[in-house]
């Protein structure tokens, strides 16, 4: 195709778009918008719609949203029964609370471990800094599942840790680590630590040395400088890292399934059971929708806090 027709084609398209009220700018925004629409909003609406139905033994296994009455009128069949069921059954409430608890505790540990690592990397001189960053990302080159299985090898009754401690004579009974909440915490913190370190690093590396010197010059000891200057300025990094750990942790399925015990209650497992064992799609959908709001609520709250801080 020649440049001329190319050009004409482009101008023709632009004219049509102009008549429809679409500018180039809208087009650029439209692509991610369409993506979100197709792969987030539509599935979300489908879930929402299923959560308002009743489970039936049919294909699909839930009641339709509307029905034509004998007189031809349209009846909408929707029920909040599934949500009421979630509220009433202690199992779900406990699963949500337990998920939140596990996600919060894991996030706190990831922060406590990740912050010093990110700080150290950010303060390192250049060639070492790149190597350390590479080491943080390196685990992503092997499959996530493989790494969780590797942890099973460590934590097992006859695993690396127990064998080592026993042969050193530190313990004479093997420690029970597998199929406990402890193993779940280890799995989650280990898996999501890079998601904590990277945003923290990106924040801390921008910290101006002169600010630390200024604090010292004004009489602040290194500890006081950390709490009055470094920590408050790294708050956006802390928030970003914590979100990146908390959000996947709350809905985590694989780690509690592989490392957790039968009494490790997490909402991801409940969801799986509802869908695949009970085949109760409406209840499973309701579980998913509630989980979504549990995740979205803290984000919205943090956003509004940040906006308010910026306005000040």
């Amino acid at each position: 195709m020649s440049a001329l027709t190319d050009n004409a084609l482009w101008r023709g398209t632009a004219r049509v778009m102009g008549r429809l009220g679409i500018s180039g700018r809208t087009l650029v925004i439209a692509i991610p918008m369409l993506w979100l629409l197709a792969f987030f909003l539509v599935p979300f609406l489908v879930l929402g719609r299923i959560s308002l139905a009743e489970a039936i033994i049919a294909r699909p296994p839930y009641t339709p949203l509307w029905e034509r009455g004998p007189d031809g009128t349209l009846h909408i069949i929707a029920t909040l029964e599934n949500y009421r069921f979630l509220l009433e059954d202690a199992l779900y409430r406990n699963a949500y609370l337990s998920s939140i608890r596990i996600a919060v505790i894991s996030t706190v540990f990831a922060l406590l471990i990740g912050y010093p690592i990110a700080y150290y990397i950010a303060r390192s001189p250049e060639p070492r800094r790149s190597v350390l960053l590479l080491l943080v990302i390196l685990p992503f080159w092997t499959s996530f599942l493989l790494r969780v299985y590797a942890w099973m090898g460590f934590l097992r009754r006859e695993g690396v840790i127990n064998n080592t401690l026993m042969s050193l004579g530190i313990i004479d009974q093997p420690l029970v680590m597998m199929q406990t909440d402890f193993a779940v915490y280890i799995g989650i913190v280990y898996t999501y630590l890079p998601f904590m370190i990277l945003p923290l690093y990106a924040n801390l590396v921008k910290l101006d040395d002169a600010l630390l010197e200024a604090a010292g010059d004004l009489g602040a000891s290194p500890t006081v400088t950390f709490f009055t200057v470094t920590l408050p300025l790294s708050l956006p990094g802390i928030v970003a890292g914590s979100m990146l750990v908390f959000i996947p942790a709350i809905g985590e399925y694989v780690i509690p399934a592989l490392l957790g015990g039968p009494d490790t209650l997490m909402i991801g497992r409940v969801l799986w059971d509802e869908f695949f064992s009970s085949r109760d799609w409406p209840v499973a959908s309701a579980v998913a929708i509630v989980m979504l709001f549990l995740v979205v609520a803290p984000i919205m709250w943090l956003q509004s806090v940040q906006n308010r801080r910026e306005l000040q």
């Binding site: 010197e213 200024a214 009489g219």
Partner: peptide, 16 residues
């Protein structure tokens, strides 16, 4: 630095 009887005004100001 934090124990010296001096204060510094930085070239970049270094305001918090």
């Amino acid at each position: 630095a934090d124990k010296r009887p001096t204060n510094m005004m930085f070239q970049s100001y270094a305001l918090f």
